[in-house]
Design a protein around this nucleic acid. Structure first.
Length: 526
RNA sequence: GGCCCCAUCGUCUAGUCAGGCCUAGGACACUGGGUUUUCAUCCCAGCAACGGGGGUUCAAAUCCCCCUGGGGUCACCA
């Protein structure tokens, strides 16, 4: 049997990271079995602009390299792949269900239904559908239809039985049908509802494995019943754990980002995002990009391989030690048998470590390419960067080494790209290391003059020079290294100090030291 | 509340199906040490878990029952 999996997003305007993990598992299972992965758009409820709301979702798939064999843009034999365009399939199935008395027209108003529900709740009784419309004669039904009475189509749940499935990750799960409400499968205008459309389409598209998040488990008995009523073969089900918020068991939700921002485990990711996004003029925060969305990671400069590695390990493992998976390795090894059943919290720390690993695997050229994009976006270099600029960036990247975990990190090395007079100083550290100590400005002045005589202005020579200076003055190395760093970069931390000086060049270094001394003196006298 | 799912270090997990190889393994984080006379890496070491109670058994993290806890879901949304 050909393995065919699907992911069926509704066009919401963004791609949720948890949904992406579900999509990944589907894609992996299809690829592992040399089957097909189908993308189907669940837009039965759409009032919004589908095309516009779909684009970010497709972008996420393209960025991560999850290609779909059938779906929007690529087409396929089971199309169309938009549910809004598959009405005839649903109509046909509804008529079949009506003909076989597996479904019925319900003329009860939503208000009546709601009231019954409330009454049952108050009396602590299980609510089940009243089925009053079942008592209508054929003539009465025709008359009400002719009169234009609003009605829906409900699936008639067979109450005297149970539904049992063998879930590929959860094992045997069973439901008592007498407790189930007859689900609405079509609205008054004939448009289908999710639970129903999904079944029709999964069958029509020969989906062999329905791999979806655990929150759909409770939809499953209805879908099984509908499959049986229509007479289509049952797919295998695999309900994977949902992606939880860091250090929690709760479903990761876009609505909670305000809370997440305050959370210890999550904060670092938000801060990384803020740092990068504000510099490239993107909106971060509640309405903008956030770590629940795939786009966030792309915009901040994560690697697809880093994100993918983190996602694949969220609820799945190969063995007791393998952590790093390339795309090819995932495809080779992924299996539904080793999906865990407990919820899996996103771990920002671990994500960063996967990311750092895959960043370190990149060639110089690839790293340069990624960083260049961010520098341009931030306006730190010209869009048409010349060879000299590119070379400079290359050196900066080399100097920065492992400090660049995501491409956006290059923006924190802005000291190499700003004009000398535009360099901003980290106020707190500048005061602490340069302004406050009484002897520092004097030391800097002396060192500055020695630096002015240093030729060639190379890292090793500079190191020797400072070392001799430190010995002669009888001070700690850090007593001059830290202030010097502050003067030329504005920061307390950064790449190798002497490499930094060399790259900045003699003229710039001296100019910045002079400027810093001037500012420090003003601060002391003020 | 009904129904359903879940339960091992702070986190992601291995071990559970086929009970003994588990004084519970790995990774991330954290802590300490070494390397880097600056920063980041890197190396080594350490910390740290079977939710509770009953069974079954020579033997239980592993099988059974109960409890507790956590979560999901209960739409003319998807």
């Amino acid at each position: 049997m050909t393995v065919r999996t699907r992911f069926a997003p509704s066009p919401t305007g963004y791609m949720h990271i948890g949904g992406m993990r579900t999509a990944l598992f589907n894609w992996l299972w299809a690829r592992h079995n040399t089957g097909q992965f189908v993308l189907r758009i669940d837009d039965t409820d759409q009032q919004r602009n589908v095309e516009e709301a779909l684009e970010p979702i497709l972008d996420a798939f393209r960025w991560l390299g999850l290609d779909w064999d059938e779906g929007p843009e690529t087409g396929g034999d089971c199309g169309p792949y938009f549910q809004s365009q598959r009405r005839e399939h649903y109509d046909e199935a509804i008529n079949q269900l009506l003909d076989t008395q597996c479904a019925y027209l319900d003329f009860e108003s939503p208000d009546e239904t709601r009231q019954q529900r409330e009454v049952a709740e108050r009396e602590k009784k299980q609510y089940v559908s009243s089925r009053t419309s079942l008592d209508l004669t054929i003539n009465e039904i025709e008359a009400r239809k002719a009169a234009g009475d609003p009605h829906v189509v409900r699936f008639l749940v067979p109450r005297n039985r149970t539904v049992r499935i063998t879930d590929l990750v959860r094992g045997e799960v069973e439901w008592d049908c007498s407790l189930m409400v007859d689900p609405v499968i079509a609205r008054n205008d004939g448009s289908p509802l999710y639970n129903f459309a999904t079944v029709v389409d999964d069958a029509a598209m020969s989906i062999s494995h329905v791999i979806r998040a655990e929150e759909h488990l409770s939809n499953t008995p209805i879908q099984v019943l509908i499959h049986e009523a229509i007479g289509t073969p049952l797919p295998e089900f695999a309900h994977i754990p949902f992606v939880a918020a860091p250090a929690s068991k709760r479903k990761l939700s876009k609505r909670e980002i305000g809370k997440y921002r305050q959370q210890k485990e999550f904060r670092k990711l938000f801060e990384l995002g803020d740092q990068v996004l504000t510099r490239i003029g993107r909106d971060a925060g509640e309405d903008g990009l956030s770590p629940v969305m795939v786009a966030f990671y792309r915009e901040v400069g994560f690697l697809p391989s880093g994100l993918l590695n983190a996602l694949v390990r969220l609820g799945w493992s190969l063995d007791d030690e393998t952590e790093i998976f390339s795309n090819a390795e995932m495809q080779q090894h992924f299996g539904l048998q080793r999906v865990v059943s407990g919820s899996a919290g996103l771990d920002p720390d671990k994500l960063m470590s996967y990311q750092a690993h895959w960043m370190s695997e990149l060639s110089h050229e690839e790293r340069l390419h990624g960083c260049l994009g961010f520098l341009k976006e931030a306006g730190l270099i010209q869009p048409d960067a010349d060879e000299i600029t590119r070379n400079r960036v290359k050196y900066v990247i080399e100097l920065a080494g492992d400090r660049i975990r995501v491409f956006g990190d290059i923006l924190s090395l802005d000291e190499f790209f700003v004009e000398d007079d535009d360099l901003e100083f980290d106020d707190k550290n500048f005061r602490k290391r340069v302004v406050t100590p009484d002897e520092t400005i004097g030391l800097l002045k002396n060192l500055r003059d020695e630096l002015a005589d240093c030729t060639p202005f190379h890292s090793a020579a500079l190191h020797d020079l400072v070392q001799e200076f430190v010995d002669r003055q009888g001070i700690r190395f850090g007593a001059i290294a830290a202030p010097l760093r502050l003067c030329v970069t504005g920061k307390a931390q950064g790449a190798d100090l002497f490499g930094t000086l060399e790259l900045l060049g003699q003229a710039t270094s001296l100019k910045r030291i002079d400027r810093a001394i001037g500012i420090a003196e003003t601060m002391r006298s003020g």
